[in-house]
């Protein structure tokens, strides 16, 4: 494969890399940038473990090729935590509501939740489920994840009110 140069931002940091055009964003994150929080569960777009935001849209790093990253702003789980690496309000809500078991799906769910709340998502259970519908969890049965999202919305609204 021919090589290309691409420049993009990850968690507000600039990168320029040279790579083959169909190399997966997932491999770029994990192998080149050593950002290990984005997980590979299936590699085919099914499970959502590799969810990130690209220019604000929820996207799957396992099926996003390098060629499409030019000029893009990428947000990963590492960019969600508070500055000191402490859990953000969404992440804390997940902890408090028991939304985490094995944790392998968790970064993906946190990203999907972040996107949902950023877009002004409401407490409506069906809407929440639609927003998380591309993410699989085999441990929790989803109930506590939905609780976590609802709790995060409450905390988000509290923050906004202040």
């Amino acid at each position: 494969m021919n090589k290309i140069k691409v420049s993009f931002k990850v968690n507000n940091k600039d990168y320029e890399i040279e790579t083959t055009p169909l190399r997966r964003l997932l491999d770029i994150l994990r192998e080149d940038l050593k950002l290990m929080g984005t997980k590979e569960g299936c590699g085919e777009g099914e499970c959502g473990a590799c969810s990130v935001l690209i220019d604000g849209e929820l996207s799957l790093a396992c099926i996003t090729p390098a060629t499409q990253l030019e000029g893009k702003e990428i947000l990963t789980i590492e960019g969600i935590s508070d500055k000191d690496g402490e859990p953000s309000y969404i992440q804390k809500a997940f902890i408090d509501k028991g939304a985490v078991q094995c944790g392998f799906c968790t970064p993906g769910f946190v990203m999907a939740t972040h996107k949902y709340i950023k877009d002004g998502g409401s407490n409506d259970e069906t809407k929440i489920k639609e927003a998380l519908s591309g993410n699989f969890c085999r441990c929790t049965g989803y109930a506590k994840i939905v609780d976590g999202v609802k709790e995060a919305i409450v905390r988000h609204n509290d923050k906004e009110a202040k």
């Binding site: 902890i95 944790g103 968790t106 970064p107």
Partner: peptide
């Protein structure tokens, strides 16, 4: 009591090291 999972923080922040994450 609902004691918080010892590994909750590392898992929600994506810093927990699964087998393929270990440097």
């Amino acid at each position: 009591k609902n004691i918080e999972r010892f590994d909750a923080k590392s898992k929600v922040t994506g810093t927990a090291l699964y087998a393929d994450d270990i440097p």
